[in-house]
Amino acid sequence: MKMKTYFSEGNLIVKLDGEIDHHSIKGVREELDDIIGASRPKTMILELSGIDFMDSSGLGLVLGRYRKLSETGSEMLIKNPTRETERILKMAGVDKLIKIINQKDA
């Protein structure tokens, strides 16, 4: 899995590509936490359109970052998950905590 991060209008954009599993998130989690800790973004947008596989390890990754952001009053959004990814997120009730936006042309 590859991760790209950048800032846009004060928001932290995190774009993940590839497969999210227990193996692939090693290192990514720590790197992301460092960026969140250092930048204290108002909102973090997790862009998942490039994710072609995700299992429950991805849920752990998403929920763990959500908790971390919530501690400092920051918000999190999930953008453009694939149909399969969205199904897992919804199955676990993640959509009740974190808003999922589908906006293909941004």
């Binding site: 989690r29 299992d55 429950s56 390890s57 849920l59 752990g60 990754l61 929920l63 763990g64 908790r67 897992i88 199955m91 676990a92």
Partner: peptide
């Protein structure tokens, strides 16, 4: 630990 979602078996079942 808190980085695991605890949803593995639920996903397998579903």
């Amino acid at each position: 630990g808190e980085e695991r979602s605890g949803m593995g078996f639920s996903i397998m079942k579903c």
